[in-house]
Design a protein around this nucleic acid. Structure first.
Lengths: 130, 130
DNA sequence: CTTAAAAATAGTAATGATTACTATTTCTAA
DNA sequence: TTAGAAATAGTAATCATTACTATTTTTAAG
């Protein structure tokens, strides 16, 4: 099953690349619908999953039960605001990431391939409002 | 709404304390049903959520879309096996945890309260079989 | 030991994100 | 140009979890 070009997939990825707020499939759907009115929600889900599996985008499971997506595949962390639910990028070099993986691998009887970390707290915007 | 004792809640917590494999609500239900045949699935969900909110147990969202539960509320990490899906405890002191939180707080414009981390890889059992 | 109000339960229906299905349309290599 | 593979739109199904409601438990006070 060779991958075949699809206009819809391109539009979905293009849209995701314009956003830094890690939208859900439903948000992607509602926005893409504006320039592609008869796109199907199933198509959005299918392509987001496909792109995530190909490693072209990242799937984030931040704990609210809804998958979020990020077109930035470089290694970076995320902060989930416990007040407004926003998901924002966290600038940080990858040294702590590698250190943590190595520390854990040292005395684990299997193989640690990596880890996912989500930070929780009050985002900049909500903090200003207090 | 003061908390009132319930036999069901006690049985649910007692069962969870006997397990180290971080069972899902459905697994808890099936097991508790054996000694409490007419317990309801809704009761299991309601009490697991209640206990988690009270801080008496921990809810784990490991990425498989199903909530897992852990009666051990001490701070510790978990490894999710990418082969068999098992969730196992990881012995590690909390120094890396605090360090990571502090590192991130240093230049973040909001407030980081904590973070959740899940390690992914091959568990000890699956590793032996290779 | 009653009893009455609050809380919890069992059983069932509803919710909501996601996936599956299918007839039709779109891609693309020959 | 065309044929077969892949993708889509639209809809139905899935499945973990939550909501609802009549009934049962719990518990504190008389």
């Amino acid at each position: 099953m060779a991958l075949k070009y699809s206009r819809q997939r391109q539009v979905i990825k293009d849209f995701l690349m314009t956003r830094k707020d890690h939208p859900t499939a439903d948000v992607v759907y509602m926005n893409v619908k504006r320039e592609y009115p008869n796109i199907s929600l199933g198509t959005v889900y299918r392509n987001l999953s496909l792109l995530a599996n190909l490693g072209e985008i990242q799937r984030l499971q931040v704990g609210d039960g809804i998958d979020h997506f990020d077109a930035d595949t470089s290694r970076h962390y995320h902060v989930v605001c416990t007040k407004c639910g926003s998901v924002t990028d966290l600038a940080m070099d990858s040294t702590p990431y590698d250190e943590l993986t190595n520390t854990v691998n040292a005395d684990f009887e299997g193989i640690i391939e990596g880890h996912v970390t989500y930070f929780y707290g009050i985002c900049g915007n909500c903090h200003k409002k207090l």
